[in-house]
């Protein structure tokens, strides 16, 4: 199918085509770009580097009710989620984040052996409208971990910003069907396609950080006890911002909010992080990851060693959020570079 053109002033019209979806798009809230459900296309921010909190927060929110329950005498009545059939569209997702959904889905299904119904259902009902990155940040390194600033395979529909307009390409069947229905979209000219190609080339050249994920994977195997972990942990403050802002971090805690007055309750899942001491604390009081050394190591190990072993992919998409927002400036890029230097 051929590419189409969407003028920026037609965004409203485009938005209206998704009336039966929950439309999530980047909005600017107090200077932070976040993916929020919008009801007015004017709220969408089109010109942004990347969102602060990744769009994972739509499918895997910071707080999510798993089910609710109520006591009736001795019986417990469980109210399951009834909103899982709702449809979502995520507009303006950067390629790295679009890719991250695949990594998260791997975790939430574990090769089909252990499926998280809530996440997977939501994912299935989600349409991702990706957007190429004309100006990647200096902290981006997607090209080293299986992505690139114009990678479109993970989106259903992919947009390229050509200035006044977008080049629209339908990728998946779902996307194709939708675009087909929008007969008002103009066809793209060869010049447009050419321009998109040039932008892609330019963007890729702008990414300067290169890491060798495979090499790192191999090195990590041998160096569980290397002194580098102490160095990494030295400046870490242990806050876990890296995990909260990471598009592939999936750890959660399950808590129960029970109201003793009404005898009703909710089981809730909230974000958690392996950087928190309590995360690995056992009931006995023993903590297998007692200090930041083990916790920092786990974060790197999980993304660059355990995840590749489980799913044959690197567990990082190179969005650079943890690099930009680490309060202690404990730069993941430098850590990986140092690991690369370890002699095996």
């Amino acid at each position: 199918m051929s590419e189409k053109i969407l003028n920026k002033d037609q965004i409203g019209k485009f938005y209206n085509e998704f009336s039966d979806y929950n439309f999530y798009a980047p909005v600017n809230e107090k200077g932070n770009i976040l993916f929020k459900k919008i009801s007015n296309p004017d709220e969408i921010v089109l010109d942004f580097l990347n969102s602060k909190i990744p769009p994972k927060s739509v499918l895997f929110p910071n707080k999510e009710i798993l089910f609710e329950y109520e006591y009736e005498g001795k019986d417990v009545i469980i109210k399951e989620r009834d909103d899982l059939d709702e449809k979502y569209v995520l507009f303006g997702v950067r390629p790295c984040d679009a890719y991250s959904f695949q990594l998260m889905a791997n975790f939430f299904s574990f090769h089909g052996n252990c499926e998280d119904e809530i996440y997977l259902k939501k994912k299935e009902n989600t349409l991702i409208i990706g957007m190429g990155c004309n100006t990647p940040k200096q902290t981006c390194f997607c090209t080293s971990v299986g992505g690139n600033p114009f990678k479109k395979e993970d989106s259903d529909i992919f947009l390229v910003d050509l200035g006044e307009k977008y080049l629209v390409e339908a990728i998946s069947d779902k996307g194709k069907e939708l675009i087909q229905k929008m007969s008002w979209l103009a066809d793209a000219t060869n010049a447009d396609k050419q321009k998109a190609k040039e932008l892609a080339k330019k963007a890729e050249e702008m990414i300067t950080t290169q890491i060798d994920a495979e090499k790192i994977n191999n090195i990590l195997d041998e160096n569980f006890k290397h002194p580098i972990w102490k160095e990494v942990a030295e400046s870490c403050v242990g806050c876990g911002t890296c995990a909260f802002l990471c598009p592939t971090c999936t750890c959660f805690d399950v808590i129960e909010e029970h109201d003793h007055y009404t005898n009703k309750g909710k089981r809730i899942r909230i974000w958690d992080t392996c950087q928190a001491p309590l995360y690995s604390m056992e009931t006995s009081g023993h903590n297998p990851r007692p200090t930041k050394i083990e916790r920092c190591r786990n974060r790197i190990m999980h993304k660059f060693s355990y995840y590749p072993k489980n799913y044959d992919l690197t567990g990082c998409v190179g969005c650079g959020r943890c690099v930009s927002y680490c309060p202690a400036n404990n730069d993941l890029r430098s850590i990986l570079k140092e690991i690369e230097q370890i002699e095996s």
Binding site: N32, N62, G238, C239, T241, F244, P327
Partner: peptide
């Protein structure tokens, strides 16, 4: 309202 309860403030 935007606080994500990451507790970075506490850790730092």
């Amino acid at each position: 309202e935007q606080c994500t309860k990451c507790h970075a403030c506490r850790e730092a």
